[in-house]
Design a protein around this nucleic acid. Structure first.
Lengths: 182, 182
DNA sequence: ACGATAATGTACGGTGCCGTACAGAACCTG
DNA sequence: CAGGTTCTGTACGGCACCGTACATTATCGT
């Protein structure tokens, strides 16, 4: 199936991202990822300097897919209310990505993780706050509202990890939206 | 200062809890905690079976202090609205405990961590939902509202870890309360 | 003050991971 | 197909931690 039997940086990064989702930053270790790919460590050290570089590649992969690629899609939705609704629906539908955003926030003391997480979080909050401003909220209130909305998202992902999130998701999302929309 | 130079299980558990707050479950390792107490491993293995037992003791210490001891205090506040307001203020004021609740939720695949976190989370959600029911919400809506409120708390703790939480905390708390109160 | 028991220190073997060394296979280019 | 370049496997040394063995010191009842 693979075009070449040799492994690329990208393939390592993707495998590392899978491990990152499952076990968090600590689990992104060279030997386990190599085992998952059926490769050995020297292949890895040919392509990467060290473990940090692998973790960073995985994080950048996540940043690209879960944030940067979404921004232009959102920008095409002219109405800010509809845009927020779309975003909330999409976010709560894909629990996996929320899981990871959350995990990374709780492991932010890692020197590799921290800057990426700060960047992604700031970007997301800015996008959400921008929509609230378009809906007529003054900047400070829009930032608070964005923080609250994103917090509900993160917190609900946390509850979902142990099966404590509401089971009727669409009803829950609707009630949250109703509470947060100006 | 210590009544005896010998170390008790409780002292080990407290030191482990401190480490748990700082570095999460993975950081609760025997040798580092021993070093922090200026003791050596054999003291530890005299008092505990293994590392799991230390982690469990730390978690139970947290459960007792941050949940079970609060419940009777809350029960003394007759008015459910006032009770919720008190709870929200107290919760957002003590960021450390929120940090830990959050961290543990993200590490819930650990076999030692999981049952404790499930128990604590269920207890807290039940207390919050109970207050919303007293305020007149039907049970299902009260549970959703409780999940949303606790999610804001968890999510905001996550944002606070990287300094992305709103800086004017009292204003933020007031706006969240306004949105969530029936 | 003395022996039993409780607690601690030192030393060790085992495991999982990091990163390096080096030899060999696979791939390209003339 | 010869030769260098690119990649991969095996083997190694090092570190941090787990848990155990055994010797050693404190503490207490009598």
């Amino acid at each position: 199936m693979p075009r070449s039997a040799r492994l690329s940086r990208e393939e390592w990064a993707e495998a590392a991202l899978a491990v990152l989702v499952e076990g968090g930053p600590g689990a992104v270790a060279v030997e386990p990822v190599a085992a998952r790919l059926g490769a050995s460590k020297s292949s890895f050290y040919w392509l990467f300097d060290n473990r940090r570089a692998l973790l960073l590649a995985a994080l950048e992969c996540w940043e690209r897919r879960q944030t940067e690629e979404i921004v232009p899609v959102l920008a095409e939705i002219a109405d800010p209310g509809e845009r927020l609704r779309f975003l909330v629906e999409a976010a709560f539908a894909a629990t996996e990505s929320g899981d990871l955003a959350l995990r990374l926030l709780t492991e932010a003391e890692d020197e590799v993780v921290r800057p990426v997480v700060e960047r992604v979080t700031a970007r997301r909050l800015a996008v959400i706050a921008g929509s609230f401003e378009e809906l007529g909220l003054p900047p400070a209130a829009a930032r608070d509202r964005a923080a609250a909305a994103y917090s509900v998202y993160l917190g609900t992902a946390a509850l979902a990890r142990i099966g404590a999130a509401p089971t009727d998701r669409s009803g829950y999302v609707a009630s949250v939206l109703a509470a947060l929309m100006p």
